[in-house]
Write a protein that binds this DNA or RNA. Structure first.
Length: 212
DNA sequence: TAGGCCATCTGGTCCT
DNA sequence: AGGACCAGATGGCCTA
């Protein structure tokens, strides 16, 4: 399925061009994913530390309590300055739990994005950068629109062919009347009578593609 | 070095 | 109350 040649290039790949930056930026993302999967987690408790430790089910590396400094937060007071009921340790524990949940949620989101990338026709290869998140979403949107358009054209073509078939049978299927009133006319010989695509031409229609 | 992309933390809001 | 979701902030990594 993942074959770009099967996809009309214009609308689809224009995104890849406009998001050219994402293609090299995404390599870093792929590397991050590899680190995520295997590398040892960063243990310094830092908002930006790469504390990804494998799958999303049990990653607790950001939750290392030994690096937590309670004095840096305001665990004992709420936003009004009142003393809260929970002890700092309990609050910290709650915060770590929330963080872990959020991390898991984001990992699930990334897994879903990976799944989306796997079904989008673009060059999947180790030498090609992984699509960025935004490029993945936009590419997927365009791909869906194109598939819908192709499906619609196919339906019209099938309907058109069914109509032509009625010319060659004594009994028109589904009670359809003959499209072409002239005996002996067929698709190949009467391209000027193509009415399957009134709104324009179609790559799926031989008449349209044969027209000069 | 700037810009793009990303992971993570965090606080807020909404829902069950 | 707890969980899900969201957006802002922060800082690291990579490439041009």
């Amino acid at each position: 399925m993942a074959d770009l040649k099967s996809v009309p290039a214009d609308a689809y790949m224009s995104l890849a061009q406009s998001y050219g930056q994402t293609f090299y930026g995404a390599l870093r993302g792929a590397e991050a994913a590899r680190n995520y999967a295997g590398g040892p987690p960063a243990l310094d408790f830092h908002p930006s530390s790469r504390d990804r430790s494998g799958d999303s089910s049990d990653d607790q590396t950001g939750d290392d309590e030994d690096s937590f400094d309670p004095t840096k937060s305001s665990p004992s007071y709420d936003h009004e300055g009142k003393l809260t009921s929970k002890k700092p340790k309990e609050q910290r524990s709650l915060r770590l739990s929330i963080n872990a949940r959020e991390r898991r949620r984001m990992h699930d989101l990334n897994d879903a994005l990976d799944g989306l990338r796997s079904v989008i026709p673009y060059a999947h290869s180790p030498s090609v950068r992984k699509l960025s998140k935004i490029a993945t979403l936009l590419l997927a949107k365009n791909y869906i629109l194109m598939q819908a358009q192709a499906l619609e054209e196919m339906r019209r073509l099938v309907a058109y062919l069914n109509q032509g078939q009625t010319l060659n049978s004594s009994v028109a299927p589904f009670g359809q009347s003959s499209v072409y009133p002239y005996p002996g006319t067929n698709v190949a010989s009467t391209p000027e009578k193509c009415s399957a695509f009134p709104a324009g031409t179609s790559n799926l229609c031989k008449h349209c593609t044969d027209k000069p």
